[in-house]
């Protein structure tokens, strides 16, 4: 098998998960495929840490997608999403469950959501997140803490409502 094919098989689930939590949880498969097409096209110019490069491509793909759709669309989708809990088999609606972690994630600003996705959901270290985002590890540590506090606050406020 093509060496790039092996890389693809290894990283596909990771990038799919990243896209799932960075996007509207509907287009994540298309976005993942698009990101890997970019990887194949640009593999010749790849330098440095491969994983960091891969996540940067994934992030740019998400950004390009929303730029093309317009930020207004994203907001509408986010509101619509708040009534659906993906993968939830209990059949409970969002209103019944009150605010869940998915809805809270949607309410975080883009940069914090990126950090949360990379650090907690993808399970990367703060040093790896720093390399991907171009920040210092210290800045990532501060930002990840603030993002968690904000996330907690959003969830609490919504539960009170």
């Amino acid at each position: 098998m093509h060496a790039l094919g092996l890389v693809y098989e290894h990283y596909y689930p990771k990038i799919l998960k990243y896209m799932y939590y960075r996007s509207n949880r509907e287009n994540y498969e298309d976005l993942t495929a698009e990101a890997f097409q970019k990887v194949i096209r640009n593999i010749g110019s790849q330098e440095g840490n491969f994983e960091a490069w891969l996540y940067k491509i994934a992030e740019n793909t998400v950004k390009d997608f929303y730029k093309a759709k317009g930020s207004k669309m994203r907001l509408e989708e986010s509101i619509m999403k708040s009534d659906k809990v993906p993968g939830n088999n209990s059949g409970l609606t969002k209103t019944e469950l009150k605010m869940d972690i998915y809805g809270a994630l949607d309410k975080l600003d883009d940069e914090k959501r990126r950090i949360v996705t990379l650090r907690f959901i993808q399970g990367l270290s703060s040093e790896e997140v720093a390399e991907i985002t171009g920040k210092t590890p210290e800045a990532v540590r501060i930002m990840q803490f603030r993002s968690l506090i904000e996330l907690k606050k959003i969830m609490t406020e919504e539960n009170v409502k």
Binding site: P13, K17, M19, Y20, R25, E29, P86, G87, I121
Partner: peptide, 9 residues
């Protein structure tokens, strides 16, 4: 967050 479900593939 770490234990959030995997996306359906």
């Amino acid at each position: 967050l770490k234990n959030l479900q995997e996306p359906p593939i």
